[in-house]
Design a binder for these strands. Sequence first.
DNA 1: GCCAACGTTGGC
DNA 2: GCCAACGTTGGC
Length: 136
Amino acid sequence: MNYWLVKSEPFKYSWERFVQDGQTFWDGVRNYQARNNLRAMHSGDLVLFYHSNEGLAVVGVARVVKESYQDPTTEDERWVAVDIEPVETLHTPVTLDAMKREPALANIALIRQGRLSVLPLTKEEFALIRKKGRTS
DNA sequence: GCCAACGTTGGC
DNA sequence: GCCAACGTTGGC
């Protein structure tokens, strides 16, 4: 079981819409590092859903329901998509600012490599963010 | 809306 | 194969 974080601009595709849809395919990634992370996802992996640009916070938890396949939005075989479904909406969004202030999260790619849109988390990092979202 | 970071492209 | 130019992302 692996843990991930994906970014979406709420204007393009928000958590609220994702919950309404019940499932979505995660496509449009055009960055090799992000693509490699998508490819490494397995069914059942848990994914934090982060709102970039607006919100700047982790707002929910999702689960991978279908492993990587050819991105349906392009003919280009380099790119892949995965299917995910919502698991839970966080009681309180965990803001980027809060994560920056958390020493245990100093090394996550969200902070160190701001532009990466699909990134891995350790089990501990994932658990900490989820816990903050449930309680704080 | 600006700008920093960083990935990609293309000329040499 | 280097590196400058350019494009994109995302925080502020």
